[in-house]
Design a protein around this nucleic acid. Structure first.
Lengths: 135, 135
DNA sequence: TCTTTTCCTATTATACCGCAAGGTAAATAG
DNA sequence: CTATTTACCTTGCGGTATAATAGGAAAAGA
């Protein structure tokens, strides 16, 4: 459900949040510290920039910085940005498409599971992870 | 996280539970009613039999029946039997192997998520799905 | 103009998912 | 004893996603 994309995205945001002072953090340094392939991180960072979670700056002294303060990053949002919708079962993705959804005996179970997961991941922020106050 | 294997397994058990009277339910009939490929169901049923969740009988009048009463089937167990361990992230599978688990900022988050999911799926049984009393 | 760094466009290897084909073994009906 | 019914077993296969790698172009500062 949550692949390396989501986990790496979270670790990257933590790393940037901790090492950006006034400036920008080069991706190479985050990749080195987190022991993640820099090339692969590029793919992930692209998604985060596109959604406005990170701000990039090119050239010397460039790199990435957070676009807002850590308390404003909900974990759920970060994971969805990197990994796409985090439905635990395929039949919940894309709103509703299953033709037997009304009579389905198992669907309420999946909907309940989806709510539980969403609720859990929506209660923490990046600040919680940085300060180790979660969960 | 939960693939068709797990979902089909659940639907199969519900179907068998509802249609076994005193006897056995042929796989073909369950496959027809549930609109699932019979050949694919064979793979799933094999797992369920091996773990003792279903009992098979060959020949005419044969098929499958539940090995215990519906209240004794925990949803979590059924899903794990068909789909394997249902960890939301790879780094939680197989007990513990991540070398940085102690210092990892995100690991407590995943462990918490894992607990929430396990707890949710462990509170319902097959009987709840059959009688539509869950969730 | 040179270096640093982001940004962009491929390509690849591997594994798993969902399924199909074809046969063997056991149990019952006639 | 034979035929039918059913579970059980082995093998293969196309599609898709994951987790990368490769090779550059564009911008920004020294």
């Amino acid at each position: 459900m949550i692949s390396t994309k989501g986990r790496y995205a979270l670790r990257l945001l933590i790393d940037v949040g901790e090492h950006q002072g006034m400036g920008y953090v080069p991706l190479r340094e985050s990749a080195r510290r987190q022991e993640i392939s820099e090339k692969y991180l590029e793919i992930i960072v692209k998604l985060l920039v596109k959604e406005g979670l990170l701000v990039g700056l090119r050239g010397k002294g460039g790199g990435y910085r957070l676009s807002k303060s850590p308390e404003e990053y909900r974990i759920k949002t970060v994971l969805e940005t990197a990994d796409g919708p985090l439905a635990p079962v395929a039949c919940l993705e894309g709103g509703q498409d299953c033709p037997q959804k009304l009579e389905c005996r198992t669907r309420p179970l999946w909907e309940g599971l989806d709510r539980v997961i969403a609720q859990y991941l929506d209660q923490f922020t990046l600040a919680d992870l940085i300060e180790r106050t979660a969960p």
